[in-house]
Amino acid sequence: MRSIKAPTTTTLAIEVYKPRSCWRMMTDSQQFRSIVGFHQDELGDWIATLSCGHTQHVRHRPPWELRPWVVTEEGRRKYIGWPLFCKKCQDEETQR
């Protein structure tokens, strides 16, 4: 993940594994959690386990979801420790 400074000095986080046209910019980097592991669901899709305990699918389904690294063991191993936006943490924070 790369961070850049916007003119307002707000830090924007960019998920670098997505193509440039699909980069998602977030202003609240608190909701990013480290990937701590992977497992497959009953359909064979890969799921990332995050440091917060939540899980998130990380599919490679071109052209909509481009994550070629998830289809190999070596690719998944390289992404251990990488930050991933956790929607569940964001939703929990919003409900408080």
Rank of each mutant, 00 (worst) to 15 (best):
D45W: 09
I4M: 11
R96P: 01
A13S: 13
Y17D: 11
Q56E: 13
C52S: 07
E92R: 09
L84N: 01
C86D: 03
D91A: 14
M26F: 15
W46V: 13
M26K: 07
Q31K: 12
Q31E: 12
D45Y: 13
T55S: 11
T27K: 15
E93I: 06
R24I: 12
C22F: 15
Q90G: 10
T55K: 10
R77I: 01
C86P: 00
A6T: 07
Q30H: 10
F32D: 06
Q30M: 07
Q56F: 11
T72H: 04
K18Q: 13
K87G: 04
H39M: 12
W82T: 10
A48V: 02
A6Q: 11
G37H: 12
S34N: 10
T10S: 03
T27V: 15
I47P: 00
G53D: 05
G53S: 07
I35L: 14
A13I: 05
H57Q: 08
A6K: 03
C89S: 12
T9G: 04
K87N: 03
F38V: 07
R77L: 03
G37Y: 10
P63D: 10
H54K: 13
W82N: 08
M1L: 09
A13M: 10
S3W: 15
Y79M: 04
P19G: 03
T55H: 08
P68F: 04
T49Y: 01
T10A: 07
Y17H: 14
W64R: 15
L66Q: 12
T72F: 02
Q90F: 00
V71I: 07
Q30A: 11
I80L: 12
E73P: 01
Q56S: 13
D91L: 11
R96F: 01
M1H: 05
R20Q: 15
S21L: 15
K78W: 08
K5D: 06
K18P: 11
G44E: 03
I80E: 09
K87D: 02
C86K: 00
L66G: 00
D41E: 04
F38E: 05
R24F: 03
H57D: 09
W69E: 02
R20F: 15
S51H: 02
K5G: 01
Q56Y: 07
E73Q: 02
T72D: 07
T94W: 06
V36M: 06
S3M: 04
W46Y: 13
I47F: 01
D45T: 08
I14W: 12
H57M: 14
K88T: 04
R20D: 14
I4D: 11
H39Q: 12
Q40H: 06
V36C: 05
E73L: 02
V58P: 00
K18A: 04
Q40R: 06
C89E: 03
K88I: 05
W69P: 00
R2M: 09
I47V: 06
I4C: 08
E73H: 03
P19L: 15
Q90V: 09
R20I: 14
A48H: 00
M1K: 05
T9N: 06
F38A: 01
P63G: 02
T10H: 13
H39I: 12
E15H: 09
G81E: 01
A6S: 05
R67G: 00
P19A: 15
G53A: 06
R24V: 13
M1T: 05
T72W: 02
Q95C: 04
W23Q: 12
D91W: 13
F32N: 10
S34R: 14
W23P: 00
H54Q: 13
D91M: 12
R2T: 05
R20C: 05
G81L: 02
